[in-house]
Design a protein around this nucleic acid. Structure first.
Ligand SMILES: [Mn+2]
Ligand SMILES: [Mn+2]
Ligand SMILES: [Zn+2]
Ligand SMILES: [Zn+2]
Lengths: 137, 137
DNA sequence: TCAATATATTAGAATGATTCTAAAGTGTTT
DNA sequence: AAACACTTTAGAATCATTCTAATATATTGA
């Protein structure tokens, strides 16, 4: 099964038609080994430079929002003027380097289990995530 | 020492002149027992309703940014279109109720100590904060 | 296959939070 | 009070994101 078929199935399973633009976005987002942390601007640059394709901003935003709602990517909570997204959709933690603006994953194994001592009657826990802010030097 | 004198000193210690507008903001932000989590819009409404005062948006933003830079309030990382601030400037954790958009503090005592297993050569840890997202039901 | 229908793409406009501008006002110092 | 420094203000500018509605493409089924 080549990637295009794979991505077509992925899109269809999400109720999205496999258009040329969406397939290009899939290549950038999902055909990679390492997690991709990105802003819309980052993504647009990669689409332009790596694939030499121009996609309208409306399509980029619409498709990213569709992927987010389908759980194929997720949004990261950061104090930034731009929204960050993450291709790692598991519950995981981040280092944010305030000197370089780099965002790096760390995983459950990199931190001792987080145990809440507080009761939350009537509430359901959706995620527990740690943000470690670091600076250089 | 009345509050006005207290707030005047606080402002001066931060290199800010104690103007009428800034003193009103201090009353709202710092004359309270419970932590205040707010957006600029929240703050503007409180200034208008509780103190019946109108302050220009530029003054509200400039003063809040000055307080943030002085460490008198801090910004909270949330996936929201608006920026949230917090009068609790200690390193602490939050519950964010995605159903009601409520943001609630929890403290070190409410969670077991967070121990990183990862080495960070050349980096200085600035903060370690947990965000627990919950929903109702 | 090909027309009918549904969905997607696009350029550009609209929106809304935040920042900037520069003119008028206030606080401080001597 | 005069001189100077800082502040407030209304409104404009900026910028990320969303909306609009015209055009294009994908899918369906006869
Ligand atoms: Mn910010
Ligand atoms: Mn958002
Ligand atoms: Zn990540
Ligand atoms: Zn808080």
């Amino acid at each position: 099964m080549n990637n295009n078929t794979h991505f077509e199935e992925k899109l269809r399973s999400a109720g999205l038609r496999p258009t040329k633009q969406r397939l290009k976005m899939c290549e950038i987002l999902f055909h990679r080994k390492k997690t991709f942390h990105f802003t819309i601007e980052d993504l647009r640059k990669v689409l332009k430079k790596k694939l030499d394709i121009k996609i309208s901003q409306a399509t980029i935003y619409n498709t990213i929002n569709a992927f987010k709602n389908k759980g194929y990517i997720k949004e990261i909570s950061l104090n930034s003027d731009k929204t960050y997204f993450d291709t790692n959709v598991t519950n995981h933690h981040h280092f944010y380097n305030v000197t370089t603006n780099e965002l790096i994953d760390f995983h459950d194994k990199d931190v001792e289990e987080i145990k809440l001592r507080k009761n939350l009657p009537g509430k359901k826990i959706r995620s527990i995530e740690v943000l470690v802010k670091v600076s250089n030097k």
